[in-house]
Design a binder for these strands. Structure first.
Length: 196
DNA sequence: ACACTGATTAACT
DNA sequence: GTTAATCAGTGTG
C-alpha cells in the first residue's frame, strides 16, 4: 500500500481536490481496517473564499487549516455530525478539502454496524455519514494523515473515471466557485443538491 | 420527486 | 443570541 506523501497536499486546493478523487482513505481501529475510495470532495480556501471557515482568519476551531499540510481538520457541526477535511496549500495559508463521500471497500460489515444501516449506498454517501461509518470524531483533529497508523490516505488503483464539478453543497456564499468535485456516474456520491 | 423540520452542540458575534 | 461545509424522517404532489 503506497501512502500519499506530504508533497501531494502542498498545492492550490482545488487542484489537490481533483487529484484526491480515486485515492483511498484508510481507518485502522485495532487490527481492523475500514477503507473506501474518495468519490466526492470540496475545496475550501481562506481570505478569498466566503464559504470557508477560515474566511475571517484563524480561530481555535479552524487552526489546523493554517498549519502543516497533510493533517486532518475534523470539526463538529449542526450539533450532530463530524466532518473530515485534509489540510492543503502551505503553512500559514488556509486551505482544506472536505471529504464528502466514499465508495466502501474494506470493513463493510463493521461500517454497517457503525451506521445502523444495511444498504452499502447509505454507509458513506455524505460527509457526516462517512465519519460515523469510520468512527472519526474530534479526537482525530490534527492527526497527521501522512504518518498516522489510525487514519491515512493511500494511492488508489482506478484512475479511469470522469471528474465532474458543481458549486459546493450546503453553503450560500462563494457560489461562483465550482469547487465540488465528484466521480461521474458513481453510485456512492452524496445526493445533496448544489445551488448551481 | 421535492420541501420542510427537528435534533443538539459549540463556535463565533 | 444566532448560526452552522448535516441527516433522517415526514408530509405533499
Amino acid at each position: 500500500m503506497e501512502r500519499l506523501p506530504r508533497s501531494f497536499f502542498e498545492d492550490y486546493t482545488p487542484s489537490v481536490a481533483k487529484r484526491l478523487l480515486g485515492q483511498l482513505l484508510v481507518r485502522r481501529i485495532g487490527r481492523r481496517f475500514l477503507s473506501g475510495i474518495l468519490v466526492e470532495v470540496e475545496a475550501y480556501r481562506g481570505r478569498d473564499d466566503p464559504a470557508s471557515h477560515a474566511f475571517r482568519g484563524e480561530t481555535p476551531r479552524n487552526r489546523v487549516m493554517f498549519g502543516e499540510v497533510g493533517k486532518a481538520y475534523v470539526y463538529f457541526t449542526y450539533g450532530f455530525h463530524h466532518c473530515l477535511c485534509v489540510k492543503t496549500e502551505r503553512r500559514g495559508v488556509a486551505g482544506a478539502i472536505l471529504v464528502r463521500a466514499l465508495e466502501p471497500l474494506e470493513g463493510i460489515e463493521q461500517m454497517k454496524k457503525n451506521r445502523g444501516k444495511e444498504e452499502v449506498r447509505e454507509l458513506a454517501s455524505g460527509p457526516g455519514k462517512l465519519t460515523q461509518a469510520l468512527k472519526i470524531d474530534r479526537r482525530l483533529n490534527g492527526e497527521d494523515l501522512v504518518r498516522s497508523e489510525r487514519l491515512f490516505l493511500a494511492r488508489g488503483k482506478d484512475t479511469a473515471f470522469e471528474i465532474r464539478d458543481s458549486s459546493r453543497i450546503g453553503v450560500d456564499r462563494g457560489l461562483e466557485f465550482r469547487w465540488r468535485y465528484f466521480i461521474g456516474g458513481n453510485q456512492f456520491v452524496s445526493r445533496g443538491k448544489p445551488k448551481t
